[in-house]
Design a protein around this nucleic acid. Structure first.
Lengths: 568, 568
DNA sequence: ACCCACACGTGAGTC
DNA sequence: TGACTCACGTGTGGG
């Protein structure tokens, strides 16, 4: 592909922003129109799961700065590839370590950098068939290193077995890099970008239908528990996505043409495949019949339409309609006239951009809300026939973003809240063993039981440890105390050059006690008892007189001793 | 009051069923029409909390067989009394210990007992102003000992400071009896009944507005954690009930007449006090304006009416309308003709009773459902003007019971589900320490964190214990093994009548080792070493020759020993 | 048929 | 004021 005519004022600068290597990757190795089919899902559900991973510091997974789901899809050439399914990237929390915040905010200060970054993203976006209105760059008033990495990742795709995600997916084994900054580490063609974003930890987790990628600027050691927690929400998703994907691919194969429009427009009510009672291609039911059946049609139509809208898939259709030459032409036009065109398309914009190319004044919020209101118009005018008609590509991924836009219709906010809660429930299910039933109440009950059990165990353990310590101390201290030589059990009689020591020990703690008892049992009488020592051992020599004719043999004695030890 | 003319065929038999003493209590000391005002609350919310305590074996409180809330109310004479607010009693679970099941099922076998029990309950019920239709006895096909106790409790009330609940309430301290079967225990005038029901554990927990009483046939030792869990759901209730009660009493005082009808009919829209945005006397909002505002008036009216219905309080109005003579007359009539009247009132009954007095064929479900359907009719006929018109007394307490009746309008079922979930959340809050925020998501997050923390700790502990055990085993086994007398370290030389034993031990584990080392340190030479023993001690006698002019004093030796022990 | 569990949209309250 | 939590009634799908 090579240079396809990107018209930057300063290519070198663009390379600086992205890094030469990464930039090369971008325009040579990885970007390809083949990922046009990628986002079959574009699943809000998935999105919420991902955003919960990175945006909620209270959960167990507080540590991630971005999350991407590499979704398995069919490329234009028919190969299976892993492409950006959905993702989320967060701004630094206020309570973040200053060091982390610093990393996350890198390159915010430089205005020209910012401009260039946006331009690069814009270009990428346009090249892949996006329009100016739905460019991410518009929605951002700053592009950090992390964000740059995150957004650029969107234009990569990986065949099975190639690149980090591809290898992870092929092997089925997770990858946990906690030192991704090390020069030797090269987990993926995007490594360079990841490093420039300060990603210390990168985790890849395979699922049935793709790969979850998480990154953190912190160093997070591999943790199987955490892995389980992360993985859990995507397990339930797998079933859903898999069916979705299978049906989509089937539809594609049946139609026997690779065009995306067929995929999009084939979604009519009578043929629309259903999965879990929901339409396959939208993550909500197209028409909640309830909306009409319940006779609450007086609600603002935005509610139904927002849910029911069949968003055409990102990039596919637009990409198809441009020849390379036309694309280049458009690119050139846009570079010079982007603001004008932008304002043209967004006449309702409350806050017009004030500088030539700077978009920082345009908050994501105003953009989106204008899109929203435009939709409302469409929706009102064509209540039923909109399927496949609206060509407006859906905003892809990272929808709530950080500069969160306002409406989140209270409906969506509530949806997110619920999703978050469910997320927690999933996570809880992952950490609590022996769940009796799968319903929430039982889960909570089991959780409570489990916690109390753990607490009890812990208390027991503590007691045990205490007593064990006491035991360990007492019989270690006791015999030591007993065996301790002190004023009470030592006696000295000094002579001229000789000293007579007399030391006493409790019998039962003394090694010879059992021998003595065995002798006693054998009715022997000790006549003389001496002991001697070398550097390693102590020898006790006993002269024993036996009563009667019994002979004390070694065997007998040993038997007596072992017998004694069995029944103390 | 004494005998007020109860017309049993066999009074002695009735006494046998309930127990003489309890029976005496019932008709002499405790029962009084004063409890007519008691059930100001009759709160479904409360009920759910209680039923959750006894009916869900999965929760932490799996162990209770009945639960009663003794609610503080104003009696007819103006005194504050604790009376049956709400309660719940459960049948044995299938998976219950056979012993417990046996206790819970006691007296099921005897048909005449059953008949008598129902008769007694019926009498009590009628005497207190109930009608045949809403008699509990109708709804039960068996009355166990536990149930008998539970149901009979309903007719008791206690002034503040008197009786178990009264004393508990006055003192503000909980009572936990885990040996309530002991003859010496007499927690309440109902003790006799409790004992006959096999209640081993009885717990009384004071709240601001009444006392929670729990009973179990198991022996449950006092447990502060459990207490906390039990108490928690009633804390949130307290606020609600207190305001409710206060307003109710205020309304009563303002009206300046003690009649209940005033309490019931005063509840019009414009004067109805509100609490938490809900009408005071019904636990649901009378009219959800939303219902009309949303324009879904085409819903079956049952929804609104069921929620909006102002159920008159139990007993109050009916009791007021009968003179004592009329009451007696009715009692006599009913005893002889109860089945006829019963069938008269329940023409829709699918399953008519088949024997003269036996009600076992009448399931609670069919009775209630007939009542329900009757209500539906009422609701349809008078859509808005129903306030205070419907005189049907509400079923009091223990509504879902065990033979749960059918509709639970899906609305109510959902309510219960939510309540149950919340219950669990409360319980969870009680067992998880360090909850950052009070919202559910955070709670779950914290719970997960806590669990993982506990698991980690436990794992650590286990490791620690293992290594400690190894440590404990090794130096416990090692010296034992070292000190073990076996073929390897014992040597016997037999003479005529004498035997010479030679036993060796490792030096460092031998008591004298430190003495020997001290001697060595003091540059002494052991000339002779003997040992002797008596029944308790072993004496080592050492003759030591010292080099040079140093004198080995006792103090020096001890110092050397202690010095050595400090730095091993 | 019914029961159960869940998710949804919505009104209301809270900070 | 908006962001957020919560409870409610309702629709729905699975057993």
């Amino acid at each position: 592909m090579g240079d396809i005519g990107w018209n930057y004022e300063n290519k070198a600068m663009a390379a600086t922003v992205l890094g030469t290597k990464a930039f090369d990757y971008l325009i040579s190795s990885s970007i390809s129109a083949e990922c046009s089919l990628m986002a079959i899902g574009n699943d809000e559900n998935l999105q919420h799961k991902l955003s919960d991973l990175v945006e909620h510091p209270n959960s167990a997974n507080f540590c991630w700065n971005y999350a991407i789901f590499w979704q398995l899809s069919k490329s234009k050439t028919g190969d299976l590839v892993l492409g950006w399914g959905d993702g989320c990237c967060r701004e630094p929390h206020e309570d973040e370590d200053s060091e982390v915040t610093r990393i996350l905010n890198i390159r915010l200060e430089n205005e020209s950098h910012q401009r260039m970054r946006k331009r690069v993203l814009q270009k990428l976006h346009l090249f892949f068939g996006g329009t100016n209105e739905d460019s991410y760059a518009f929605g951002l008033d700053k592009v950090t290193d992390v964000e740059m990495f995150f957004l650029a990742s969107m234009y990569f795709s990986f065949p099975k077995g190639e690149g980090g995600p591809g290898r992870c997916f092929a092997s089925g084994k997770h990858v946990w890099l906690s030192n991704a900054l090390k020069p030797s580490i090269d987990y993926c063609v995007r490594s360079f970008l990841a490093k420039s974003a300060g990603m210390q930890t990168i985790v890849l987790i395979p699922t049935d239908v793709g790969v979850v990628e998480l990154g953190s600027v912190r160093c997070i050691p591999e943790n199987l528990e955490l892995l389980k927690v992360i993985r859990s929400p995507f397990l339930s998703l797998s079933v859903f996505l898999r069916a979705k994907k299978a049906a989509a691919l089937a539809a594609l194969t049946n139609k026997n043409d690779g065009s995306i429009s067929s995929l999009v427009t084939s979604n009519h009510a009578e043929v629309a495949p259903k999965i879990f009672g929901q339409d396959l291609y939208s993550d909500r039911v197209q028409f909640r019949d309830r909306g009409d059946a319940k006779g609450n049609g007086d609600r603002p139509p935005i509610t139904n339409t927002r849910n029911g809208f069949q968003w055409p898939q990102f990039r596919g259709n637009t990409l198809q309609s441009y020849s390379p030459e036309a694309l280049t032409k458009i690119l050139n036009e846009r570079v010079n006239g982007e603001r004008e065109e932008y304002r043209l398309n967004d006449s309702q914009l409350q806050k017009p951009a004030q500088k030539q190319i700077d978009f920082t004044g345009v908050s994501s919020r105003s953009v989106i809300s204008s899109v929203e209101s435009e939709h409302s118009g469409v929706e009102i005018s064509c209540k039923e026939e909109w399927v496949g008609l609206d060509k407006r590509p859906r905003k892809r991924g990272r929808k709530p973003a950080n500069g969160r836009y306002e409406p989140l219709n209270h409906v969506e906010a509530e949806r997110m809240r619920r999703e978050k809660l469910n997320q927690r429930f999933y996570a809880l299910r992952a950490v609590v063993p022996n769940i009796s039933k799968m319903d929430k109440a039982s889960l909570l009950g089991d959780t409570i039981a489990y916690i109390t059990e753990l607490q009890k165990k812990l208390k027991e353990m503590e007691c045990e440890r205490e007593s064990l310590q006491n035991e360990a101390l007492v019989p270690e201290a006791k015999p030591n105390m007993e065996m301790e030589v002190s004023a009470s059990n030592i006696d000295i009689q000094a002579g001229h050059e000789e000293v007579t020591l007399r030391v006493s020990f409790p019998l039962d703690a003394h090694p010879v006690s059992r021998v003595l008892r065995a002798i006693k049992d054998a009715k022997g009488t000790i006549i003389e008892a001496k002991f001697a020592t070398d550097s390693e051992k102590v020898f006790h020599t006993l002269l024993v007189k036996l009563q009667g004719s019994e002979r004390l043999t070694k065997e007998k004695l040993i038997e007596a001793l072992s017998h004694e030890s069995n029944s103390p």
